[in-house]
Design a protein around this nucleic acid. Structure first.
Lengths: 219, 219, 219, 219
DNA sequence: TATGAATGAGGATTCATTCAT
DNA sequence: CATGAATGAATCCTCATTCAT
């Protein structure tokens, strides 16, 4: 078999593992199922990854890498523009779309489920993903503050809170990821998050001038 | 065996199940381990609960009830007082303490891990717990708004965001629940959350007057 | 199931294990085969013995006990009588018959094969069996010496050598236990062993008087 | 690869196989382990030997040849000399040293363990080794008898018994080959064997005249 | 020829669940 | 009702062996 074929097989196993682990959880995922889904024989899986735990870690790491790349791309969209509120809403909505993707949901699920058995997963994923998204966002917010578009702020804390305002309210709405959240709900959550964020962190004069949507709910 | 003893046994099994499921996860928790930890024989577990799935649901429900009660008690502390900021910070900190309790962490972990295999868990727990905490908090916020201590707001959305501002930043700090977060970090997160919350939802005049802590990070 | 039935099952498993291990060796003996041969399910074997190694040890110990009992009974036949040579020949022959029994052969085979993986087998078996046969024989020889039927001797050493003279020449003749040795060959080996033994350890006067069989090979 | 290199590889595989089989037994010896220990790839082993069984047979045969050569050399030391007893003791001791060598022990172990699965091993080894040692020894004893140094005897039987008197008592002392027997024990066994042998087979006048060591144990 | 990679069959062990007492 | 014992199904992993290069 060519080296190319070997790599293909490795990728196929990793992809299959990602899906099966996501579907069944670590304990109930069968190595035979993964092998079948990857179109290889069971021992091939062991030749490549040694044991189920290693396979799990590598599958998680691959998924985390992909999720990180997507999220960083979204954060990169946050460039200074004419309409800061609209920009933040677009970026916020996009982050929520990523956040609600099946693979993202499954990744968080697996992570939270298995973190006691595999404590090192935190480093694999958090070092690779979550914190770096927060930091990238913090960088952007710092530049906006420097440009006078936001008030002076602690960038990391502001980024944490921006993300929390976006993703927090989604948990309940997605029923822990089991219900697809319609796009208009995503927009509504993003708008509400951005509104609160700008009220708290926006430049004072600007923040007061634009009337946010969700401000007067009862009317 | 007396009726009393029978009920004791049921409780013992439920308690043991709660601990073992929390420790090992659903798939790896052994019914024999639960039985042993409860001090009964394995078939006794089956006599009481029929099968492992039912036992799991009941154990989760019991845990969720306990968590709900605790959280509601905390929300009930949110009474109008002289110093709104201090009150919110105290309540926020107390909610975080509950949020970080071992059993709360384990409950969320189990829930998120098994929600695909047991979709009805969402109703068991969410109907019993999470939403009701949000709503109870929303009630309190509405009364504060009515009393003029907060601006006019959508109570549910404000409650969601208050909780998000509290719990969101904790995930990273607790390494998904595997690291105990020191109390001063909990206070810091609570203060930052309340500060942002009051900037966004506080009565305008009041909010401007009090200088928040985290406002000027570099100094 | 009655306690009686439980013990029956344990015995059945032990018996089956003895046969299968003897037939296939430790590594190639399948626990499923043992279970099937015992008429029980595989987990029943594990309920009783924990794992394959323990089962092996217990099966060996049971076989060793049985072999020891048989051999001791044979040694006990060695009582002072009129015709010492005939008595020794009868006992020697009987020991060889035991030595060549299928189960004895298999036991020695297993022992020698697995002693590196299970060093404690030596204590299980040797403490239980081999040494005690030698000592029992040594006791008898000492009494014969005391009675003046044998010359003064080191009883243990004489017993070792008596057994060696019997069993040593059998190894080659039985092709390491794979060929059944005909009874007349057993008698011949026994007679030759006794002849040599009496020449070396017999009372001088007596030894010279009786003309041994194998003395004049060419005739 | 040069023809020389090819032969080297074959020898390396054979040597590695010998060691691994001796260490682990047939069933648990892995072909990959043998290949690794020989410094070649697994399929190379199959190219040279076809399958595991063949490799096993050839490894055993090689070991048996080596053991035979050594033993024959020892028997050849048995030349008529002034002091027959001392000569026999020297030869006997030397045979025991060979008998207790690691590789000899392992060879006998493997043989006895696998003789049921590989009945032809007996011919490979016995034809090559054990019987021929006995016969070589028988030849020497016959010449000694002819020279009047021993009484008239059946040479094969006497050889069998001489070897039995040597090796039989060693089994227990070496704990089936798992304990290295100190040299002075080997000498003691050899002396005791020779003493008994000479009492039984020695020239009458000579035997009576020399007082053997182990004759009067209690004194 | 020598090798890296792949495979099919099989083995020990565990687990949720059910009888018989 | 509570229990000790038994079970059928499933799981992870290993090994001898064979292609394709």
């Amino acid at each position: 078999m060519s080296a190319r074929g070997r790599i293909d097989k490795r990728q196929a196993i990793l992809a299959a593992a990602g899906e099966v682990f996501a579907r069944e959880g670590y304990a109930l995922a069968g190595v035979d199922v993964i092998a079948a889904e990857a179109g290889v024989a069971k021992p091939t899986v062991y030749n490549h990854f040694g044991d189920k735990e290693t396979l799990f870690r590598e599958a998680i790491a691959a998924d985390a890498d992909r999720a990180l790349a997507k999220h960083l791309a979204v954060v990169a969209e946050l460039r200074d523009g004419n309409d800061l509120r609209a920009t933040l809403e677009r970026v916020g909505h996009h982050m929520l779309v990523c956040h609600c993707e099946d693979r993202s949901v499954a990744l968080r699920r697996l992570l939270s489920a298995e973190v006691t058995r595999f404590p090192d997963l935190i480093d694999i994923v958090r070092g690779h993903a979550a914190d770096r998204v927060t930091e990238a966002l913090a960088d952007r917010l710092a530049r906006l503050a420097l440009a006078g578009r936001l008030r002076r702020l602690d960038p990391t804390q502001a980024a944490e809170q921006f993300i929390a305002l976006l993703t927090g309210p989604i948990e309940a709405r997605s029923r822990l990821g089991t219900r697809p959240v319609p796009d208009d709900e995503l927009w509504a959550v993003a708008r509400a998050a951005v509104d609160t964020f700008l009220r708290a962190f926006g430049d004072q004069a600007a923040a007061r001038s634009s009337a946010p949507v969700a401000d007067t709910p009862g009317e």
